[in-house]
C-alpha cells in the first residue's frame, strides 16, 4: 500500500514538473512585452499632497526609497532630485543655487483648471462678472463641493476667508500684503504675513525642514510651508499638532518570548 502511495507521489511530481516545463515554453512563445513597471509613488510629509515618483538615478540607486507599509519616503538617494532654485527671498542672503525647492505647482490637481475654466475673469459666465468685489466671506457651493474643508474653514477661526490667501483675479496664484500675486511655489511669502515668528525661525533653519548638506554654507533643499502643513485643515479634534494624522511605521520587535506589549500599559505605580 505504502509503495503504491510513493509511486503515486513520484508520478504526480513528474507530471507537475512536465506541466511546469510546458507552461514555461508556452510563456516564452508569445514573448510578452515587458510591461512598464507601475511607477512607485511615495509621499514626503503630506499624503496626497507631497508625492514623489521613485526613479533610478544611477544603476541600483533610486532617488528615494519608500516604506512598504505606509508608502512614506524613507531614504533619499539624491536630495536635490527635481529641484529648482528657490529664488530671491527677503532677508535671506543665500548664494544662488545653494537653496533649492521642489516646485509644487505641478502637483496641485486643480491648479491647471483654476485659472482657465472658471476663474479667468473673462469667460462668458463672468458677463456680468461674478468675481467677489469685496473680501467679505460668501459661501460658494461649487468650491465647497471641490474642497470639503472649506465648509467650516478653521484657519483663523472664521476670521479669514479664501480671498485672504488666494488672489482675486489670478486664481492659480496666492496673494501677498499688497495684493500682488505670489507663486504657489513660494507660500512662505504669504504665510509669513501672520506667522512672522515661524517665518523667522524657518529662515534661520530652526523651523521646518531642509535636506542635503548640513553646513551653514552648504546646498540645501528647502521644504516650504505647504509641503508639511495643509492650510485648509489646521485644526482637527483628533490631534494636537499642526499636521494631519498619518499611519505610523511598524513597531519594534517584541522581546523574545513576549506575545504582546500589554506590559507597557501597566503602570508601576497603581493609580
Amino acid at each position: 500500500m505504502k509503495k503504491i502511495a510513493i509511486y503515486t507521489v513520484i508520478l504526480a511530481l513528474c507530471g507537475g514538473t512536465l506541466y511546469a516545463v510546458s507552461a514555461a515554453d508556452k510563456a516564452v512563445e508569445p514573448a510578452p512585452a515587458a510591461a512598464p513597471k507601475e511607477p512607485v509613488v511615495c509621499f514626503e510629509s503630506r499624503k496626497g499632497a507631497s508625492d514623489i515618483n521613485q526613479q533610478e538615478i544611477k544603476p541600483g540607486l533610486p532617488n528615494v526609497k519608500c516604506s512598504p507599509t505606509t508608502g512614506a519616503a524613507l531614504w533619499y538617494g539624491d536630495p536635490y532630485h527635481g529641484t529648482v532654485p528657490m529664488g530671491k527671498m527677503p532677508q535671506m542672503d543665500i548664494p544662488e543655487g545653494k537653496a533649492v525647492v521642489v516646485p509644487r505647482s505641478e502637483k496641485l490637481a486643480l491648479m491647471p483648471m483654476c485659472g482657465t475654466a472658471c476663474h479667468n475673469g473673462v469667460g462668458p459666465q463672468f458677463n456680468p462678472p461674478t468675481l467677489p468685489k469685496s473680501r467679505k466671506p460668501a459661501p460658494v457651493p461649487t468650491m465647497e463641493a471641490m474642497v470639503p474643508d472649506l465648509k467650516d474653514l478653521q484657519h483663523g477661526r472664521g476670521r479669514i476667508w479664501c480671498m485672504d490667501c488666494h488672489h482675486t483675479t489670478q486664481r492659480n496664484k496666492l496673494v501677498d500684503h499688497y495684493g500682488d500675486p505670489v507663486s504657489f511655489d513660494q507660500p512662505q511669502l504669504l504665510c509669513g504675513k501672520c506667522h512672522g515668528d515661524k517665518l523667522r525661525d524657518w529662515r534661520d533653519g530652526i523651523h521646518g525642514k531642509r535636506i542635503g548638506e548640513f553646513t551653514s554654507t552648504g546646498k540645501k533643499r528647502w521644504f516650504t510651508c505647504t509641503e508639511c502643513h495643509n492650510p485648509h485643515n489646521v485644526q482637527d479634534g483628533a490631534r494636537n499638532r499642526g499636521f494631519v494624522q498619518l499611519q505610523p511605521e511598524p513597531s519594534p520587535q517584541l522581546p523574545k518570548g513576549m506575545k504582546d506589549a500589554k506590559h507597557e500599559l501597566l503602570h508601576p505605580i497603581a493609580h
Binding site: E44, S45, A72, A73, L74, W75, Y76, P79, G205, I206, H207, G208, K209, R210, I211, G212, E213, F214, T215, S216, G218, F223, C228, R241, F243, L246
Partner: peptide, 19 residues
C-alpha cells in the same frame, strides 16, 4: 557634509543637525 538619514526623512522637521 550630508545630513543624517533620520533628519532627512522626518516629515515634520523636528530633527536638526549641525556644527
Amino acid at each position: 557634509d550630508r545630513y543624517p538619514a533620520c533628519v532627512e526623512v522626518c516629515p515634520v522637521g523636528a530633527r536638526k543637525f549641525g556644527n
